[in-house]
Simulated assay, not measured.
Amino acid sequence: MLRRMIIPALFGLLGTAILIALGLWQLDRAGQKAALIAEMEMRIFEAPAALPDAPEPEAHRYLPVRTEGRFLPEHVFVLSAQKAQGPGFHLVQAFETDDGRRILVERGFLPEAARAGLTLDAGQEAQLIGNLHWPRDINRHTPPHDAARNLVFGRDVEEMATLLGTEPTLLVLRASDPPASGITPVPVYQVSIPDPHLGYAVQWFLMAMAWAGMTVFFLWRIRTRRD
């Protein structure tokens, strides 16, 4: 009887050990991700630096930046909503820096009713402080750009840069001098990075428990059949 139980027992122990190891690995990954998020959230509120020559999503995401230049007429509205103000739009507008670069600036939120009377301040000189960001709020179900209403249904930096003729760099405004009238800046306050590792760890540990339980049940069946 013992000989018949050895292989199933070893198989069960090996499978359980592998699943537990995978769960522990995911816990370690969760800790690394939490440390990364904490580091990036600290970066949000650091003293602003100059706009990098070649901004990169991985290296410069959430980097505080100060720049000067002028707003351009090109713009697009991003469908959105705010709890206190209801449905409306985020205004993303082209901005030319003093050294001739064209970037995207997310100026903030305006309620739906305020869109008709909006002043774009095209040509106005401004000093901006904000954070670089590369959000991608779209998926395969997101409707395409509505050219008739100059409206997009989610932020995609590459798409907006193509529409407005800028480099794919988005500055989410924190403050401007002079401030915009009728537009409420919505600064970056926290990091938005998927962190599924804790959930994955729980799944692996549950699978380990199930594997161990099935192994015990199988060994019990072998023993009772033998008896």
Rank of each mutant, 00 (worst) to 15 (best):
L198P: 00
G100C: 10
W211I: 01
W211K: 00
R107S: 02
A148S: 12
A35H: 12
E41S: 14
T142Y: 10
N131V: 02
L19E: 03
F89L: 08
I129T: 13
A126N: 04
H197D: 09
L170D: 00
P111K: 15
R61N: 15
V191M: 09
I183H: 02
E58A: 14
I183F: 06
D227V: 09
Q203L: 10
P168I: 14
G182P: 05
G15K: 02
A30S: 13
G165H: 07
F109N: 00
E96I: 08
M207P: 01
M209P: 01
N131L: 04
Q32P: 00
I6E: 02
T97K: 07
P64R: 03
I20E: 05
T97W: 07
E125Y: 03
D121H: 08
R155K: 12
D99V: 07
T162N: 11
E46I: 10
T67N: 06
E39V: 07
G69P: 03
L164Q: 01
R66W: 07
S192V: 13
G108C: 08
Y189I: 12
L36F: 14
L72M: 14
R70I: 00
E112I: 15
F153H: 07
F45N: 11
L171H: 02
E125V: 11
I183A: 00
D177V: 08
I222Y: 01
L91E: 02
P73N: 07
Q93E: 10
G199I: 04
A161G: 06
D53R: 11
P196C: 09
A54E: 13
A54R: 13
M1H: 08
M40H: 06
R102P: 02
L104P: 00
Q26L: 08
P55W: 02
P178K: 06
V152C: 03
P52R: 05
R66N: 09
T142M: 11
A175H: 10
D137A: 13
P52W: 04
G15T: 11
A116W: 07
Q93F: 07
A30N: 13
R102E: 06
W134V: 12
I138Y: 01
M207D: 03
F11S: 13
M207H: 05
V186K: 06
L63Y: 01
A17W: 07
M209H: 05
A30H: 13
D28L: 15
H145C: 00
V186A: 11
E58L: 15
Q82E: 12
H145D: 05
S176Y: 01
L198D: 04
H60A: 05
P144L: 08
R226A: 15
T169Y: 02
V105R: 00
H75I: 08
A114E: 13
H75Q: 11
L91F: 13
T215S: 14
P55G: 10
A47T: 15
E46G: 14
L104F: 09
T67C: 13
S80L: 06
P185A: 12
G182S: 10
V186T: 14
M40Y: 08
D227W: 09
E125L: 12
L91S: 03
A201F: 03
F205N: 02
G69E: 03
